[in-house]
Design a binder for these strands. Structure first.
Lengths: 208, 208
DNA sequence: GCTCAATAACGAATTATATTCACTTTTGGG
DNA sequence: CCCAAAAGTGAATATAATTCGTTATTGAGC
């Protein structure tokens, strides 16, 4: 054959892109900046990726899946179904949208401005919803399992995920997301037990 | 004084912009197209608006408020609180995101790509949430009014609104949005009455 | 009506970037 | 040790938003 594309170069491009997207967002990051950061010429980037859009897709999938795996690791220490459900909701509506200085928003930037003829696969969305449904299946009591049929509840969460991602960039961290998580827990599991008289902090998730 | 900005010119610019945004989306609509459609030069547009972003803002607010007023007009004919709640949810998650070929998505395009130094006011979001809360206050039974405290439930709806707006452009009409509305109705008002044996159609909202 | 200054309207730059292209350099298999 | 395929390059190209210097219009005061 001949020269082989170097994994190191690809990595360098992705790393530089990630840094810049995080700092300045997708739209305002130029290929010139990415190239400079990766010590590569702009045109050589096109030997590795067909477009700027493809670069962010390459970053997005592993990032999101990693975050969902992290969520799974966080759950076992939590004592009650309520704490676990709350954590799942907060992961999707708060922790992931704010991760990496709002990285999720970059994907929305990219997707919403893409040309109609550029392919877009919703596989990742479907996969993520299924993953969250599987997590919920292990948390919810039997009489609440109808919620996750057809990934309905997960779909709702991921639709709201978009909104929280956009709003994080506009207004900073949401002041109401925890209240919304509690509200959803109440709706799904019934009202929280009255904690009056219970030592402060006992209802907080995490190490007891 | 001297020449006065003509309302007709401003209107023409907005109308042309609306048409083009609807057809091709915000990013792919050029000022050249808007100018041509409005029979105005590109540079004259800048006598009326400071930027492309300002044009879509000028279209967005009246459009959204009009849609929310339309929602209010749709409610009185509906018989039950459940039908009304369902209609509110469907308005925010389905009807408004799909209106005008996904006009809402244009605003997301504009907002998500705006420069950080461009002012953005969340007043409209807050106003809309308050409006929907007020509507819900008239629908929900007293023991469910805690849901709308601090506009929590409305906020959740409007966060999901963003997701549905984005996804409408990517995948067309959601196949699950009605199921999600039913799910939310069930969570908020308790399970739907069993309609087995009831004449078909009796549970559908609208004229009885 | 007439004047004139404010400003609407204009066309031609300017700027900023993603993408393409023709060319040069490198390198792995025979 | 070739050499062709592919990596890598710098210079166009294309597309658009925005700015700028100039011209044309017009409403208020006379």
């Amino acid at each position: 054959m001949a020269q082989i594309k170097k994994e190191a170069v690809r990595k360098a491009i992705l790393e530089s892109a990630r840094r810049h997207f995080m700092q300045r967002g997708y739209s305002r990051t130029t290929l010139a900046q990415i190239a400079k950061g990766a010590k590569v010429t702009i045109s050589n980037i096109y030997n590795y990726f067909n477009s700027k859009l493809e670069i962010i897709y390459a970053l997005y999938e592993p990032w999101l899946l990693e975050r969902l795996e992290k969520l799974e690791r966080e759950l076992p220490p939590l004592a009650t179904p309520r704490q676990k459900l709350r954590q799942v909701i907060l992961a999707v509506l708060r922790d992931i949208p704010t991760d990496q200085n709002g990285f999720a928003n970059n994907v929305l930037q990219a997707i919403s401005t893409r040309d109609a003829d550029e392919a877009y696969s919703r596989d990742l969305l479907l996969k993520s919803e299924a993953l969250v449904s599987a997590i919920l299946a292990r948390i919810l009591p039997g009489d609440r399992l109808w919620l996750i049929e057809d990934d309905r509840f997960s779909h709702l969460l991921f639709m709201a995920f978009d909104g929280f991602a956009v709003n994080y960039k506009l207004n900073g961290p949401s002041r109401r997301v925890e209240a919304i998580a509690d509200l959803m827990c109440d709706l799904v599991l019934g009202p929280a037990p009255d904690l009056t008289g219970v030592p402060v902090g006992a209802e907080i998730e995490g190490i007891t």
